[in-house]
Amino acid sequence: MSPSTSSDTRNDDRFENLRQELRRGSLPLAVLAALRTEHYGYTLRKTLASHGMAIDEGTLYPLLRRLETQGLLVSQWREEDKRNKRFYRLSPDGKLILKQLSIEWKSIHASLEDIF
């Protein structure tokens, strides 16, 4: 491997790690925003992916559980297409937190724009 290739790979790795870190931080906000409309896990993943926020099962389901434990989501098992599915939506607390987080997100975005 030539030195430039090795350096490129290292840069790619570093970029990928930082990108993942950046996206990981914004996932709860994306999930809360998407759950203003009721979804079950799979359709939620599809919705997020269609908006450029792809998330794997191993990350989404533990996050949904955490948000539900914190009282920000409510869930319900229901039959659809002859299969049992768990549907999630925002709780009243979740709506409030989503509003606050959206303001915070816009503020961070504005600050970063200002720094850039």
């Binding site: 896990g41 799979y42 099962e57 389901y61 559980r65 098992w77 299969r83 049992n84 599915k85 768990r86």
Partner: peptide, 8 residues
């Protein structure tokens, strides 16, 4: 958890 993962 398994029911949900299985469904996905």
């Amino acid at each position: 958890i398994i029911a949900e993962l299985s469904e996905d």
